[in-house]
Amino acid sequence: MTSFLLDNRFSPVTNSIGFLKCDPDRAARAYLDWQVGIQEKRGVRLAQQSVSGPLPNALRSLLPLTSVETRRFLFLPTHSAWTAFLDNGHDGTDVFAPVSFLAQQLGCEGVRATANPHAPEDKLFGATILEIYGPHKTEFLNYIRSVASTYDGYKWSFSTAGAVQPFEDPARYAQRKIQSRFTLDMLDAYLKAMGIDAFDADFYLPDNRAAIRIEKIGPSAPAMREVAAGF
């Protein structure tokens, strides 16, 4: 049975992880090329820094978490061709906007992997989501495929869109219990079929390679607040 990355000790940061199928230096450079001009207009500069492992140390470099505006972004090398992406948002990493955009800019695939535990008594609502983005526009933005099982606080829902991938098990999508249609084990298997071992800490920062952290320096959104993290 699959376990959450680092036993979910670094939630909410690791509940959603982005992946780009390219080198981390190239991914970070593309992010800077995209954001520098945007941020300069508001008096913000972007600083790049190397962050050494192990993985918990790299994740703590994102602190403090912030609401309204994310301020720190992490690009991590892995044991495969994929680079992992995380940010310091207090509700977890915002994967879609940066990863789907950079996939087009870099001409590579991008992935969103979301695995939220389901503990309604603690106001934690379950979600298992896989989104695959491509380098070119599709019928909907640059989505290639999405599979999702989510709980909104009232009920579970399940959805799919895009082209079924060769590694999928569509028969499971007919399960009577909605949350059983796309489970953490299934997400793990799908990701591994793509070369992503997302829930194994040893997958990240191989051979003592450092992560790349990009940080905004300067004015922040007026309503932004720092939020305490449990790690």
Rank of each mutant, 00 (worst) to 15 (best):
G37M: 07
G37V: 10
Q39E: 15
E40C: 09
E40N: 12
R42C: 07
G43P: 01
V44Y: 02
R45D: 09
R45A: 10
L46K: 09
L46I: 14
A47K: 11
Q48D: 09
Q48G: 08
Q48I: 12
V51I: 14
V51N: 07
S52T: 14
S52A: 15
G53K: 08
L55V: 09
L55S: 04
N57T: 10
A58W: 06
A58C: 10
A58R: 05
L59K: 03
R60S: 08
S61E: 15
S61K: 06
L62K: 01
L63I: 04
L63T: 01
L63W: 06
L63R: 03
P64M: 10
P64D: 12
L65C: 12
L65D: 07
T66K: 00
T66F: 00
S67Y: 01
S67K: 01
E69G: 00
E69M: 00
R71V: 11
R71W: 04
R71S: 14
R72E: 06
L74Y: 11
L76Y: 02
L76R: 01
P77R: 06
T78G: 04
T78K: 03
T78I: 06
H79L: 11
H79F: 09
H79Q: 13
A81F: 11
A81K: 15
W82F: 04
T83L: 02
T83S: 05
T83G: 02
F85W: 08
L86I: 13
L86P: 02
N88D: 10
N88V: 08
N88A: 14
H90F: 13
H90D: 11
D91M: 09
T93R: 01
T93P: 01
D94N: 11
V95I: 12
A97G: 05
A97D: 13
A97P: 03
V99D: 05
S100D: 05
F101R: 13
F101W: 14
F101M: 14
F101D: 13
Q104D: 14
Q104M: 13
Q104N: 09
Q105V: 12
L106D: 02
L106F: 06
L106K: 03
C108K: 01
C108P: 02
E109D: 08
G110S: 06
